[in-house]
């Protein structure tokens, strides 16, 4: 890596972001976080109401990054083989019958697992294995997934009847859980203008899939100062209710975030720094990603629920209390 690479990376990231922002209106924060997850090699759990642009966002990213996109609509009757693929009997030229592996939709670079909580835990776990190992195993045969590989799962906060909420252990494997907010008044008008009245804009390819891996390597080299690292660590640890000093965690949380949360937080902060045009991690990077990293990794207790608090509220309180240095 040379100096030009760093500057180039920062330029590319900005360019990618700008390109996606052209077609996804009013979701700047969401776009940034999704891109961070992609460049960090992580997976994202998107949570938002239907019609806020989740699928469109994923499609746009796939196009800008020149990645193969695949969408899986999760339903209760969806089977693991429907995701990873299956061996089918096929007749060759000789007329003999053989088992041939038919790849499922998971064999793509970007997977949109739509409404992942509607599938059974068995189907969910099939996807989660792929997320973690970047491989799938069918009939004892292991198949490596294409690089880069990202899963963008979505959850609908409404219609929770007949769903299978993801267990905490599985949620922990997602780098971020991003809440996709409803666009504001101005954004709504812009969306309408952009999509209804005129012809829809198509995002342009900015980089190739292979470059994502290079950028990922550069992201990991971004230096982080000791006080910043310590701040992030204190932040993660302060979600642990078993530590006596953590009044808030003890009061509102059943369980807190673990080491993986810290890893993801630091990695995400490094990528965020590059998006900001900085070659180093700042306190602000940690703060901006803390909620997305921590919210799905902490469990509220009865007191928090009875007080009407959400994970996001608790993380907010912890952030306010945590001193930088």
């Amino acid at each position: 890596m040379v100096l030009q690479d760093i500057e180039y990376t920062m330029q590319v990231l900005n360019k990618v972001e700008s390109e996606i922002e052209k077609v996804i209106i009013g979701q700047k924060g969401v776009i940034r976080k999704v891109l961070i997850a992609i460049f960090c090699g992580g997976n994202v759990l998107l949570e938002g109401l239907p019609g806020v642009g989740k699928t469109h966002l994923v499609k746009s990213i796939a196009k800008v990054l020149d990645l193969k996109f695949s969408r899986i609509q999760f339903t209760p009757d969806l089977m693991p083989s429907d995701i990873v693929g299956t061996n089918i009997i096929s007749k060759d030229k000789d007329g003999s019958l053989n088992f041939t592996f038919q790849k499922g939709p998971i064999f793509a670079n970007i997977i949109l697992a739509d409404e992942i909580n509607r599938a059974t835990p068995k189907t969910q776990s099939a996807l989660l294995e792929a997320m973690q190992e970047k491989t799938v195993t069918v009939m004892g045969q292991t198949y490596k997934l294409d690089e880069p590989f990202f899963v963008l799962a979505t959850q609908n906060p409404l219609e929770q009847e007949g769903t299978y909420p993801l267990p905490e252990a599985q949620q922990d494997r997602f780098l971020f859980k991003i809440e996709v907010p409803l666009p504001g008044f101005d954004e709504m008008i812009r969306i309408v203008n952009l999509t209804v009245e005129s012809q829809m804009l198509e995002p342009q390819k900015v980089i190739e899939g292979k470059e994502i891996l290079n950028i990922g390597r550069i992201v990991r080299q971004v230096p982080i100062a000791k006080p910043v690292l310590e701040y992030a660590t204190r932040l993660v640890l302060s979600t642990q209710p078993h530590i006596e000093e953590n009044d808030i965690a003890r009061k509102y949380l059943k369980f807190g975030a673990g080491p993986r949360a810290l890893q993801h937080l630091i990695l995400g902060a490094k990528a965020n720094a590059l998006f900001e045009g900085r070659p180093n991690v700042a306190f602000d990077d940690i703060k901006s990603l803390a909620k997305s990293v921590l919210c799905h990794r902490i469990g509220l207790n009865f007191e928090a629920i009875s007080e009407g608090l959400t994970q996001s509220d608790v993380v907010d309180i912890i952030l306010q209390r945590q001193k930088e240095w």
């Binding site: 900085r278 180093n280 700042a282």
Partner: peptide, 24 residues
């Protein structure tokens, strides 16, 4: 944005990115 703190810690570290941080 913690640029100086990071640079101070990178004094003596001779990698491309550290040089870039220190120079900027």
């Amino acid at each position: 944005k913690e640029r100086l703190t990071t640079s101070l810690e990178l004094i003596g570290v001779d990698t491309e990115i550290s040089r870039y941080v220190k120079q900027t």
